[in-house]
Design a protein around this nucleic acid. Structure first.
Lengths: 212, 212
DNA sequence: ATTAAAAGAGACGATCAGTCTAATATATTT
DNA sequence: AAATATATTAGACTGATCGTCTCTTTTAAT
């Protein structure tokens, strides 16, 4: 049960405090992420997001041209958030490279558990829904996956240099393999409301990596 | 481009030919599968299915109590269809067990290609949408995945007995791993409109199996 | 001819994304 | 300090579409 986030907003032209001026827009994006990681795009109405933050429709269309534009902003925002998360984990030189990947998995697991496995991955959700989505999303989603792939590939290469995984492993391929399967794992974790699919996939992936 | 399947149906009580009496219902189910494997449940309107087969709304609610009941029927039907497909492949004793799994992968790939990677897996689609679906679907979807898992596990055990994969492999785990990742691969194949994710995942899976 | 069953036809209220007009309060200008 | 400009809130409203339901029509069976 999430606390209702009704914020008292003053009407009229707001005081010139640039750091606060995006408050409403910010709230909308935040709520949008919450709802869309849970239910996806098509089955989420704008009214639901509006009600959640106590913002009237007029404001929404003041800040966003359309639902499509709102979704695009969410993709961008989620991609940024996730890239930062990956950077934080994969760039953590206090750990061995494979341990960094494992830390990401742990992080994701506790994150999903915190929301009782109701929220998944925005990119995966939208990817699955793509057939019913604005065609303009497709390229963005593919690009995000590609970004994640290359980040992970670099991490795996580092693991290879330290001898954590055999030289025979194609890191690009392995990274692609990981994200393909990971989205499946997130899907199943949501369906079963359990961390098990995440663990099964992660363990299987690591086991496969160590082969000779 | 699929051929429009408009069938001339006579009004009123139909002649007593039991093998034909389910014709309209049958058409609705078939069209439902086509559309829902593509776009999922929430973003598919009943009208779309109706228009596709030239059936008025009144008829739909004659055959099905609700959209929810219709969806449940589709799950059941898809599960039957898929179980048959797996049985056909995994029970094909003319091939080695691993080759049987590979044949399934090939089959799925050509199947997706035939529809230009627009149609995916109904169970995966609904699983992803679960948050916006009737809660009654959850158990069914989980059960279907479980069925697929045990079918595959038996096939992998057979492979193990023939020495195709090491005795150290936990076949149940490996089977669970496969379906978790496979759904991710189907998702990506749809997103990228390409067979590549299917191949990347399948190859990665086989490579992982052969480890010592 | 009458009855019963099957299916067609479309009305219905709810909800959808999106539009538009106004009200309001602050910033800016004079 | 009064007047004006502007950013934002506010929510009624539109037309399309949603799932559901009721009533009529058509035909088979009696």
């Amino acid at each position: 049960m999430e606390a209702e986030q009704i914020v008292v907003r003053r009407r009229g032209r707001p005081p010139k405090r640039p750091e606060h001026s995006l408050e409403t827009r910010e709230l909308l994006l935040r709520a949008g992420l919450e709802v869309l990681t849970e239910k996806g795009f098509s089955s989420t109405g704008i009214d639901e997001i509006l009600k959640r933050v106590g913002v009237p429709k007029g404001s929404f269309y003041h800040y966003f041209d359309s639902k499509e534009a709102f979704g695009a902003a969410l993709i961008e925002r989620y991609a940024r958030y996730f890239a930062y998360k990956l950077e934080r984990h994969f760039g953590d030189s206090s750990k061995q490279p494979l341990a960094r990947l494992w830390a990401f998995v742990e992080d994701a697991r506790t994150g999903m558990a915190r929301h009782e496995f109701r929220r998944g991955c925005l990119i995966g959700n939208l990817g699955q829904e793509m057939a019913a989505l604005p065609e303009s999303y497709r390229a963005s989603l593919i690009a995000v996956f590609h970004d994640w792939e290359s980040r992970l590939a670099r991490c795996l290469e580092a693991a290879q240099h330290r001898g954590e995984i055999p030289a025979s492993v194609d890191c690009e391929q392995a990274a692609a393999f990981f994200w393909i399967g990971w989205e499946g794992a997130v899907l199943r974790a949501k369906l079963e409301r359990s961390a098990k699919p995440l663990d099964v996939f992660a363990l299987g992936f690591f086991a496969g990596l160590h082969k000779a």
